[in-house]
């Protein structure tokens, strides 16, 4: 237990926390956009899976990581359009269509992997890039400023998303169609177009979340690579109270506790492994109970908009 409070462990926890939080940040902030506009997309995990495969396969074939990333974003966009078509245009129940999208992504990524790759292979993923001067700051420099571009991107996305949602006209439109689509419609906002845009932004970011796993953090693809991370990302949106800053807090908390429980096991802390692996989930639930902020939940969340009914 004593070793748990050493500098080496703190460094290790912070390094792992940043790596583990990266896919959550992309996926959960993307989902924040969709939900702010009133659409719950439960297909995030499926988008991540198919995009993770796409990024991996394109990188494997071309050796070009940026093409791989582009493929992931394109797959995300395509699946976002499908989700929007089903839930916004056709007004299907959002939860069910999201689960359908997840199952499509899970099955299709597995099928394509089997047919096109066959066995587990690795690729050379995005390598850490040291930021001059900043990376030389003692202790935090190597932790914060020696990461891959996708890690930097995930953390830069937080303020960017906050600015878009809180300080721009577009953010206001997202909120308007998520809170009261009929009122937004009466003010001349194209509710359908705004919801399409929000869902597609979310899906593209979910695609990049998948790519962050397959061509940056793990550098391989395997069936069900995400292991349910997309669903945790959806939960993080609720945890974060539909705010990118809140999502950041949730992602860091969940990742840090996950990292700490691994260190506890490595250092032989006398705690059953089955309890240790539960810790991130228990703590997240407790934190969720303590910080529940339903007041911020978009009023029209999960409700299709039908102009003829208003």
């Amino acid at each position: 237990m004593k070793g748990l409070f050493s500098l080496n462990v703190l460094t290790g926890v912070l390094n792992s926390m940043i790596a583990l939080a990266t896919p959550f940040l992309y996926a959960a902030i993307g989902e924040t956009f969709a939900q702010t506009a009133g659409v719950v997309n439960l297909g995030v995990d499926g988008i991540m899976l198919l995009a993770a495969f796409g990024a991996f396969f394109v990188t494997l074939m071309t050796g070009n990581l940026w093409l791989g990333l582009l493929a992931a974003a394109a797959i995300g966009l395509a699946m976002g359009l499908i989700m929007a078509l089903i839930s916004v245009t056709l007004k299907a129940e959002q939860g069910v269509s999201g689960i359908g999208l997840y199952m499509f992504g899970l099955g299709m990524s597995s099928l394509l992997f089997k047919v096109l790759v066959g066995t587990v292979k690795t690729v050379q993923g995005f390598q850490p890039v040291s930021i001059p001067i900043l990376s030389t700051i003692p202790f935090i420099g190597p932790i914060l400023f020696n990461n891959s571009v996708l890690v930097y991107g995930a953390f830069l996305l937080v303020p960017l998303a906050w600015v878009v949602l809180e300080k721009t006209n577009l953010g206001l439109k997202f909120k308007a169609v998520g809170q009261n689509p009929a009122a937004a419609d009466s003010l001349g906002i194209n509710v359908v177009a705004i919801r399409y845009l929000a869902v597609c932004i979310g899906a593209i970011l979910a695609g990049i979340a998948g790519a962050s796993l397959s061509i940056s953090l793990l550098n391989l693809f395997q069936d069900d690579l995400t292991s349910g991370q997309g669903f945790i990302a959806v939960a993080l949106v609720y945890f974060g109270g539909w705010s990118p800053i809140g999502v950041l807090g949730g992602a860091l908390l969940f990742s840090a506790v996950n990292s700490i429980q691994l260190w506890m096991q490595v250092l032989g802390v006398n705690l059953p492994a089955s309890v240790a692996v539960m810790l991130p989930y228990i703590l997240t639930i407790v934190a969720l109970m303590m910080t529940a902020n339903r007041a911020r939940q978009p009023a029209a969340l999960n409700k299709p908009f039908d102009r003829s009914e208003n």
Binding site: N8, G12, A19, L213, Q222, L262, W263, V266
Partner: peptide, 14 residues
């Protein structure tokens, strides 16, 4: 796989 990778990196860091 992600958590397994982190577990391995934790061992290496230790």
């Amino acid at each position: 796989v992600a958590l397994m990778t982190t577990a391995a990196k934790t061992h290496i860091a230790s």
